[in-house]
């Protein structure tokens, strides 16, 4: 954000805009955003990064999941104006050049999707989830809260419960993530 940018003026009809610099997939984007803009809309409508999908737009389906400073979040509930010094990673940024991310390869190998609409969110969520588990974070199904978790299928299901798949590819999604986790 531009230092002391005056964003305090308000009247009922005029949009309030803020200039900021967004960092997405290690690219810098100087951009002027409406304070009402969510990260999901900025990515899709302004930056032409349409990997993150709009499903419910209420934080319930997970199709919009991206990583902010390496943590998975719902981009439909994140106001872009809050993100000026954060590093954002979308599904477009997961691959290493032409080499897909191991989770992307595993999703293909395990046929972990049908229509594919939820897949970008599933992938970003899984990347964040594996980092959480590697950091020793428990889940509510972890048998011993004080011990490091072991990522069995129950753990994967619980930790991925913020991502819905209306095609019902869950069995293969769990298998794909499990292969990378173990």
């Amino acid at each position: 954000m531009n230092g002391e940018a005056d964003t305090t003026r308000w009247d009922a009809s005029t949009p309030v805009t803020v200039d900021l610099r967004l960092s997405v997939n290690r690219d810098e984007y100087p951009i002027t955003v409406d304070t009402r803009e969510t990260l999901l809309d900025t990515l899709r409508e302004r930056l032409d990064l349409t990997g993150a999908k709009k499903g419910c737009d209420h934080g319930q389906c997970g199709a919009c999941t991206v990583l902010v400073d390496g943590r998975r979040v719902k981009s439909c509930l994140t106001l872009t104006v809050t993100l000026d010094d954060r590093e954002i990673t979308t599904v477009e940024g997961l691959a290493d050049g032409d080499a897909p991310h191991p989770l992307q390869t595993a999703f293909v190998d395990h046929d972990a999707f049908q229509c594919g609409y939820c897949t970008p969110g599933q992938l970003c969520s899984a990347v964040g989830m594996l980092a959480e588990a590697a950091a020793g974070w428990p889940s509510v199904v972890t048998p011993d809260m004080s011990a490091a978790p072991r990522l069995d299928d129950d753990e994967i299901r619980e930790r991925m419960s913020g991502n819905l798949c209306r095609c019902g590819a869950y069995v293969n999604i769990v298998a794909a993530i499990g292969e990378v986790a173990r």
Partner: peptide, 9 residues
Amino acid sequence: GASGQIRNM
């Protein structure tokens, strides 16, 4: 409560 993404936020 909620989901992993929501708890991160």
